[in-house]
Write a protein that binds this DNA or RNA. Sequence first.
DNA 1: CTTCTTATTGTAACTTTGTGGCGTTAATGA
DNA 2: TCATTAACGCCACAAAGTTACAATAAGAAG
Lengths: 129, 129
Amino acid sequence: MEKQRRNTKGKQLVMEVFQHEAGALCHADIVQRLAGKVDRVTVYRILQGFFDEGVVHKISAENGKTYYALCHDCSAGQHADNHAHFYCMGCKTVLCLEVTGQPPQLPQGYSAAEASWLISGYCPSCNAV
Amino acid sequence: MEKQRRNTKGKQLVMEVFQHEAGALCHADIVQRLAGKVDRVTVYRILQGFFDEGVVHKISAENGKTYYALCHDCSAGQHADNHAHFYCMGCKTVLCLEVTGQPPQLPQGYSAAEASWLISGYCPSCNAV
DNA sequence: CTTCTTATTGTAACTTTGTGGCGTTAATGA
DNA sequence: TCATTAACGCCACAAAGTTACAATAAGAAG
């Protein structure tokens, strides 16, 4: 049977951080923004929980860090495929772009659970420099 | 001016490992395969060097590890875009697939250095179980 | 072949990222 | 209000990756 979920202070705080931010955030970003209000380990668990519930995307960026971003066009448990994650090599930020595009056909025997573009480059502010 | 590159024993050994392997490898894979012949830190530096030269791709997989794979259809400094990285959630291996597909159009002001699909799912052997 | 320069290596110490165990706290349903 | 147990904080630990520095060895020059 399903394990029940509780709406705790920690989850609310982490969710607020996401809602006040346009782009994706990594674990360290969130911990810093919460300024000691929620334990480091708890934040890991909350993020994993959000991911399991399908509330956030998980993005492994080029810098080896894992970023998280709120899902907007995804139904629970099923992430949308027409999705691109942009990593700015200048300011090391990640953001989600809604794009159209069919994921490629996989060879025989392969099955896909999730597919997304990963694009790295420079964002407008870093390009301007 | 350009910093010169030297062709060392370590680089040769790491390159041989890549050439004997079909898929992508992470740092730990390589160190293990070299069985103490090259130091852990040196392997990090060699991989970073290969990446800077455009000899290998860098792939951040879902498990938080960074994988490396030889570039085949990429010219120096310019990676090919028609590329997909497949991560098997079963055996935790990564491989490159040659696929066709236009990367999405980016919003105004953004510039892309590299674009690739990141697909996670199950490979034929893990699907068969 | 010897010498010089400096890119590269190995070693150690350290930072960052992420996980597991455990006793305590508090969110929910009765 | 009380009982259940999901979730929390804290600790220790594992793995990934970086930095500093002295020693080594490519490659170029003589």
